[in-house]
């Protein structure tokens, strides 16, 4: 093959004329460079935060699972020690009480790692339109049930691990059952109105709405979120979702 010459010089007349008018590719100017450099630096920094967050979430989740294992052992022991329900109390209520008691004891001793991990997490931007605290089943059900008044009050199980697990289930249901995924996000909003993964929840919810064909709702929710996600870690994902909705 011979070395080609440019069409601008000796190409077909029509094409030569067209190419004569065509502008060259615009190079990156100093302003563009400064702007893109700042954004890239944010990606690098943001990824470190996300990496740390994932690690802490994982640690918290691991600690939560360890707690559950200990609780399982303890519940077994408790049941073996006091199998008969007290008078006036249904068997299920008694079992529930025993379980809760055992849970509170174990959590009081085993949760510092998890709660410490959670408290050291960087605050993620949360959507302003986050649902106000609704009647929370968890709060209603977590009244102290310990049968010994001197026992420390029951501590909530690690909420970040719960949040992560709930959103993991929501995300897992997205492809097969977006309705269920949406319901999980609503459950998350109800249980964790000030949760640390509010933004993540909104993204899953928007995706679920999109898959359900409720595109207008999804778009409105995404656009509302975009203003608050501007320059943040979630902005690219949000824009990607919005692209698919336009």
């Amino acid at each position: 093959m011979t070395r080609p010459t440019r069409w601008r010089d000796d190409g077909p007349d029509e094409v030569r004329d067209l190419l004569r008018y065509t502008a060259k590719t615009r190079d990156l100017g100093p302003r563009d460079r400064a702007r893109t450099r700042a954004r890239v630096a944010r990606i690098a920094a943001g990824a470190a935060v996300v990496g740390g967050l994932s690690l802490l979430q994982s640690a918290a989740l691991g600690a939560g699972l360890a707690v559950l294992t200990l609780v399982g052992v303890e519940v077994g022991t408790t049941w073996r020690a006091s199998p008969a329900p007290s008078a006036g109390q249904s068997p299920s209520a008694s079992a529930s009480s025993s379980r809760s008691s055992a849970t509170s004891v174990q959590l009081a001793t085993a949760s510092p790692l998890a709660s410490g991990a959670a408290s050291s997490l960087p605050a993620l931007p949360l959507p302003n339109d986050m649902a106000p605290p609704r009647s929370s089943a968890r709060h209603a059900g977590s009244a102290p049930l310990a049968d010994d008044a001197t026992e420390p009050p029951p501590r909530a199980p690690d909420s970040l691990a719960e949040e992560a697990a709930l959103l993991e289930r929501a995300r897992g249901a997205l492809a097969s059952s977006p309705g269920e995924a949406l319901a999980r996000t609503e459950e998350h909003a109800a249980r964790f109105p000030s949760g640390k993964l509010g933004m993540e929840r909104e993204l899953v919810a928007i995706d679920a709405l999109r898959r359900l064909g409720r595109r207008a709702e999804a778009r409105a929710r995404a656009e509302s979120l975009l203003g608050r996600a501007h320059g943040g870690l979630y902005e690219p994902r949000l824009r990607q979702l919005l692209d698919g909705l336009r």
């Binding site: 590719t25 615009r26 990156l28 890239v40 630096a41 990606i43 690098a44």
Partner: peptide, 25 residues
């Protein structure tokens, strides 16, 4: 090879390549 170093070295190349691949302003 960190991200900012890659940007400093090749931002212009990426910028121009994307336009050449049809990404508009």
């Amino acid at each position: 090879l960190d991200l900012v170093a890659v940007h400093d070295l090749h931002a212009s190349f990426v910028w121009c390549s994307l336009q050449r691949l049809g990404v508009r302003d």
